[in-house]
């Protein structure tokens, strides 16, 4: 039962993510692109839940869908550039698609070449009794990775200051 549920979930979420991202890339209007991206983010959040990463799924929704995407929307609205025309240079589109396809095939071939991954069963996280995902995550993050965590905070601070300085009107 659970297994069927997992399978169905994976396919639904995966196809949603792929289709949404395809639409995102191909929409002429940036606002539409942003909305399709929102859908992709939600689908990816669902996949995170499937992979026993509830906390990540939560911040995926909050940070990506809530913060970053809103930031994009703001900029798009703010600049409101006139339409740049979508497919003016077909050669470029063909070239880009071909390169991306080759890259994809190469990745897949590389994956297929390594035997372990093909048959690796996803059994889900086996957390110790009474330890939820968030607790386990916090335990690792604030012990082993405390220094990178602090560095990341400094990075965000710097980015904030930098963004203000750059975007400031002189």
């Amino acid at each position: 039962m659970n297994e069927i549920f997992m399978n169905v979930g994976f396919w639904v979420l995966g196809i949603t993510a792929v289709v949404a991202s395809l639409f995102m890339v191909t929409r002429e209007n940036p606002v539409h692109s942003a909305l399709w991206m929102l859908l992709t983010f939600f689908a990816v959040a669902g996949i995170f839940i499937q992979l026993d990463a509830e906390y990540i799924a939560a911040i995926q929704v909050m940070v990506y869908a809530g913060a970053i995407l809103v930031l994009y929307m703001f900029v798009v609205m703010l600049l409101n550039p006139k339409s740049t025309g979508f497919i003016k240079v077909p050669a470029k589109v063909i070239l880009g698609s071909v390169v991306a396809l080759v890259l994809f095939l190469q990745i897949v071939m590389t994956l297929m070449g390594t035997g372990v991954i093909k048959s690796a069963q996803m059994s889900g996280m086996n957390l110790p009794e009474g330890l939820s995902n968030v607790k386990a995550f916090g335990a690792v993050m604030f012990t082993q990775y405390i220094v990178p965590f602090e560095v990341a905070s400094i990075l965000l601070l710097v980015a904030m200051i930098g963004a203000i300085v750059i975007a400031k009107k002189d």
């Binding site: 995966g14 991202s21 890339v25 880009g96 994809f104 991954i117 069963q121 996803m122």
Partner: peptide, 20 residues
């Protein structure tokens, strides 16, 4: 049955779409 490869291929598809 879901294997690791399912997820990796999904990721590869989305990555390639991003590149495109």
């Amino acid at each position: 049955m879901l294997t690791l490869a399912h997820y990796l291929v999904l990721s590869a598809i989305i990555f390639s779409i991003g590149v495109a």
